[in-house]
Amino acid sequence: MARFKKDTKSGTPKINTASLPDIIFMLLFFFMVTTTLRETQLFVRTQLPFATEVQTLERKSLVSHIYIGPPFQTRIFGTEPRIQLQDQFATVDDIASFISAEREARAEAERPLMTTSLKIDRETTMGIVTDVKQELRQVNALRINYSTARGEVPASPRR
């Protein structure tokens, strides 16, 4: 019977946890690489419309964003769609100086490739969008991208 006594002496076997830090680092690097840091805080809602014929926006460093939509804080700012440039509300007249500031920040050779991405809420009316487009034409920022979500267009919007 003495033979069996040996087993009770050793406790639970130790698990080698040397690879745990590797796993945690893998997680960390994964999120560091994939996360797109949002440099601006949005004040307006931009629920994008759907489209199927979309192109991917390349060269993110050459893209400047214009946000248009109803403000989140409706009690302070109302429900009328507003324009947001960088991290503040703006009017159509501010677009010219915004675009020239964006141009200044890029190398001269890359300026013709600059794109303006319009992130516009789907319930906005075209009036304000047309004003913005006219202003962009005036300052020669002609490459624009109507930002959309990828997906089927709903059967018949509004109606």
Binding site: T56, L57, R137, R143, I144, Y146, S147
Partner: peptide, 14 residues
């Protein structure tokens, strides 16, 4: 993964 997609257009020159 937030990829910016959209419809790219060229505006007519002023």
């Amino acid at each position: 993964m937030d990829v910016d997609v959209g419809i790219t257009r060229m505006l007519p020159p002023p």
